[in-house]
């Protein structure tokens, strides 16, 4: 699609991408009012619950609690995953030794190990950060390794021909060259971090969106439960948008496959 077409079709595009959503919202507002189904309350009712939870500050505390933990965990595994990934991608022999264990750890369903962390670290923040680190570490690590292995060797030669030192080679060549892979791994991990924090909070917490959803489900306050779910949906979409933007900025130098 060319530039001109895009502008002309902007209104049409907006219609395309939002019409189904609009229909769903309208349906959700009005159909439950008639159907009287207690499992799916009308959006009007949910908005009312949203107003209540916002005004008493409860929702805000839950959002901050969840995001704080998942971001902290994501940050730790990003730094550690990139650092170790650069190392293992470079020293292939080391990777061969570690690969078996890494594959086992990566392929073990994440939440199955949560009890270990809970026993060791309690049901507080520490065990949640630990499980998030565990869950988000592998996509970043394995993608970084893949990225490093894929670095064009002529670029390394070119840099080496200029007498660059090892550290410089890593920072100025290997890291930026593997950045598209690293970012892809980060994107995956960011989604996982939300998933895992919600699950962990459902299994044991006093605050957080996962706890909130679980808690209101148990106490049959269905509209409030939906507030938590919709909030998470919005956060998930916003997070993805943010990462897409970041990705576009960081990989601006790449030839876009679909650019004409």
């Amino acid at each position: 699609m060319s530039q001109g077409d895009k502008k002309e079709n902007l209104v049409g595009r907006f219609f395309e991408i939002s019409i189904i959503l609009i229909v769903i919202i309208i349906a959700w507002l009005f159909i439950p009012l008639k159907a009287q189904n207690m499992f799916v309350p009308s959006l009007f009712t949910i908005l009312g619950a949203f107003k209540e939870l916002t005004l008493n500050g409860e929702l805000w505390i839950d959002i901050v609690t969840s995001l704080k933990l998942s971001f902290l965990g994501l940050l730790i595994s990003t730094v550690a995953g990139i650092a170790l990934g650069l190392l293992l991608g470079w020293f292939v022999k080391l990777e061969r030794y570690l690969d078996t264990v890494l594959q086992i750890m990566r392929n073990t369903p994440v939440l199955s190990v949560l009890p270990i962390f809970v026993i060791a670290l309690g049901i507080g923040d520490m065990s949640k950060i630990a499980i998030i680190v565990w869950a988000t570490f592998f996509p970043i690590l394995l993608n970084t390794i893949q990225g490093v292995k894929n670095v064009d060797s002529t670029l390394i030669r070119a840099a080496e021909s200029m007498g660059i030192a090892r550290v410089g080679l890593f920072l100025k060549v290997v890291l930026p060259a593997s950045s598209p892979f690293i970012i892809a791994g980060f994107r995956l991990s960011a989604g996982v971090s939300l998933l895992v924090i919600v699950a962990a909070e459902m299994l044991g917490a006093n605050h957080g969106l996962g706890f909130m959803i679980f808690n209101y489900q148990h106490s049959y306050q269905i509209p409030k439960m939906y507030v938590g779910i919709i909030t998470l949906a919005v956060i998930g979409v916003l997070l993805n948008l943010l990462i897409v933007k970041l990705e576009a900025k960081l990989t601006r130098w790449q030839e876009k496959a679909n650019a004409n």
């Binding site: 064009d152 002529t154 670029l155 030669r157 070119a158 840099a159 080496e160 021909s161 200029m162 007498g163 660059i164 410089g168 100025k172 060549v173 930026p176 060259a177 950045s179 130098w253 790449q254």
Partner: peptide, 30 residues
């Protein structure tokens, strides 16, 4: 390798994440 020799390869070997200016600056950064 050292900076008393410069090499130009068949495959260009420009750093794709660097602009033209930044590419030419590379050896000067080293």
């Amino acid at each position: 390798p050292a900076l008393d020799r410069g090499i130009v390869m068949q495959a260009y070997a420009l750093f794709p994440w660097r602009t033209v200016l930044k590419n030419v600056e590379f050896g000067l950064e080293v």
